[in-house]
Amino acid sequence: MENLGRRKFLTSAVLGTATTVVGATALGSLAPETAFADDKWMLEPDAVDPDFAEGRITGIQGSMLMVTGSDRTFHRIQVTGGTSIWKLRNTTFDEAEVGDGLYARGARMPDGVLAADAIWLNIVNLQTHIVAINRDVLHLDHHGHRIVGHVVSGTTAAVYNGTPAISDLSLLQVGKHAQVIGAWRPDTNEVDIATVYAAAA
């Protein structure tokens, strides 16, 4: 319910059907070249980015994710209402599960907690070849390893030759290369496909 009210408020903010919106800013005043000085970010070449985390969720306590990095670093990641969560599509915090892999971007607090702006759960980006196509499944070769890609109705989109994404996958061709952005199913060789980039048949 709270969510519905929030959506209603934001809808009226952007479409201007209500006059009670407080704090909504018209765009005209946003000129980045005047409003913002250029930032620069440099780290030592092999330093780990302090405002980033990679790993698998080992525990969830309230709105805090306990994550063990693949290099065995331990991270505590704080999720707020302003944190975007991606798991195949934009979703909510309650979809996060122990065992999920993640990448998180945010700001490292003095106490070591990463206050997350964005979290991507199980996301993979694979350069593959399409080996075979079965009903709603793409069999993919990824550097010699077989990956099973599931087509998820209502979500999976295809981009052919860089044209706008569409839901029609019928132009995919066996034997051609394809880049797949998807959500890995933990501890399997299967992914759910979010977007597949391919050359049109």
């Binding site: 070449p45 092999d46 330093a47 290099d71 199980n122 993979v124 550097h143 390893h145 933990p186």
Partner: peptide, 23 residues
Amino acid sequence: GPAFGPCGTAGGGACGTCKSASL
């Protein structure tokens, strides 16, 4: 470098010391 999922087999790249968490 070390990573979850199908990335786990990626290794340190052509230069040997590539890491997902570094720039």
